[in-house]
Every structure is written in structure tokens, then in C-alpha cells.
Amino acid sequence: MKKRVVLYINQFFAGMGGEESAHIPPESKNTILGPGAAFTQAFGDEAEIVGTVICGDSYYGEHIEKAREECLKLIRAFEPDCLVAGPAFNAGRYGLACGDICTAAQRELNITAVTGWYSENPGRELYGANVFAVPTVDSARGMKDAVAKMSRLALRLMSGEPMGPAREEGYFHRGIRKNFFHEKTGAQRAIDLALQKFHGEAFQTELEMPVFKKIPPAAPVKDIKSAKIAICSSGGIVPKGNPDHIRVSSAMNWGKYDISKLDDLTPENYESIHGGYDRTWALEDPDRVLPLDEMRKLEREGAFGKLYEYACTTTGTATSVANAESFGREIGELLKKDGVDAAILTST
């Protein structure tokens, strides 16, 4: 049996007019419009376009929730296996609409969704992590190629077979890394790559260097004598027995520990559970990682106002950057709520 596909397009590709018609609300047709003919041909015996849903680009952009809901209703009525949206090329509003409706169709209707856009289409920036999209050129002159790629990807996804890497299957990656097995070993690949690089040939790294986010520095504390200061650590320093079951590596959580009644960390009250370094010295004296003893002395001497009542800690080894960032946000919320003025974070 042929798979059922609904095509989503804008007013322009539906032949209903250009910018002057961009405000038209969603409607559906049983006929094949615009790129539909090319898709029908590309799908061959495997799938067919069972309906077309049209929405004006401005309408979608200006009434995004309403447009989404109406379009979903129209799409659902066709009982499709798949939604194909666009291709949007470099049309910004159209790209956003395609990205939004594909995201919604996947989530709400639990069906496959595919779109296509130019690399700089703003839809990609916003929805690229959610949807399968193929790269296109920036204008409709690339229609034939885009339809071929989109239909191939849609059929691949509908087949239920495991999806290969973006590089091989020809879609924009969604920012996710997945393990695959190559034909050659890592050592063989490395030497091939080195020879290409040496001979000045084009070469492809297997991991592009990521760009870490930077932020402008926070303003300094003005009055240190009344400042409340927190100590935090990713060095795996926790109360003995690790009450929050923080993992020794690849941490999934962090702990908040009351240190208000402690002056010194000792092997009796605290320990290191970190799996990434030799813990001999941290076990002997956990202050070597989380410096409670000296901070307490400095507090008593009046070098700063007050040590925050809690220490926030986790383990940093093999912990993904995404997890570390979310711990940071959670700890940041806590410190903000409790009126902390500055923090010292130690890492191993």
C-alpha cells in the first residue's frame, strides 16, 4: 500500500498570489498543487500526495499558534503517514512556517515530517534541532533537486529503517552526535586523513571544533566586608556516604550541603567521590579541593561578610557540557534566590 503524504505549501507555490495574498488563512485541497506534481513523480509507487494544506506566510507568522492549530487539524483530516513542507529555499517566513508545522506534526500527530531550506534560512536556526530538513539552494530554481532529496529522505524515514548520519543521508544535522561503525578502523582513518592533509587535498574532520559560549564578566562586588560568598566545586567533594548518590563520573545531578556549622572538612565528615583524579590527597583533606577551612578563617577575620550556608558540589569528569550548564543554571538560581553576592568554584 502506498504511504499517504500531505504537502504543506504557501500561497505563492499554491498559485494563489504573491505578497498581496500572504495573509490568507489555512485551507486544504484534495488536489495536487505546486511542487506536488514533482513529489508525486518522485514518490513513484511508494507514496502518494493525498492532500495539500496551504497557508499564507504572513498569516502563519503573525498568528503562529492559531495557524499551527488550524493547519494541524487540516493535516490530521487526511490521515497521513508523513508531512512534506516546502521546500522553503531562502524565504524566511515560509521557512519558519515549514519548521513550525513539521515540529508540530511530529509531536502532535506522531508522523514523519520533512522540509527543505537554504542553509541561512532563519527557519533552520529556530527549528533545525527538531526537524529533518534537506539543504537547498536559495531560490526555486533548485526545485527539482530539492524535491528529489526531500522525497528520498521522506521515504527513508517512513520505511522505519535506522537512519544514517546526516553526511551520508543528505540532510541538515540536528546537532546530535550518534555512534556509527565505519568501514575502516580509527587508526586507518587517521592515517588517510593525515596523508590528505599533507598532500594539500580536501579533508574532512570527524568533529568540527565547537565554539564555546562566552559572556561579559559580571560586575565586581563593591563592598567585600558585607558580601555573602558561596563555595562550589566540581571536584566531587560530598558529605561522607554521598547522600545524593552523585555519580563518580558522568554526573546527572549536584548536591547542596549545609556547611554552616562546619569549620573544617575532614576525612570523617567529607570525602571525594570524583572518578577522574587520584583522590589520595582530597581524601586526606577535602579542604584541598573545597577550601572551607581557610574561607571560614577569612570570614572570622572579617576579610569578607559571610560564607553562604551551603556548598554546591558535583563531579566534573566525563560529565557532558550540557549537564554542567544546567547544573550551573540551577545553582545560579539558588544563589540568586538566597542573595549570594559572589561565588568561588573549584575544579579538579
Partner: peptide
């Protein structure tokens, strides 16, 4: 970085 950004305080 995230603590500094979220809490808006200097983090050493």
C-alpha cells in the same frame, strides 16, 4: 559561566 549568567554575580 552559567552560574555567573544566571545569578548575575562574579564567579571565580
Amino acid at each position: 559561566r552559567e552560574i555567573e549568567k544566571t545569578a548575575g554575580i562574579p564567579v571565580v
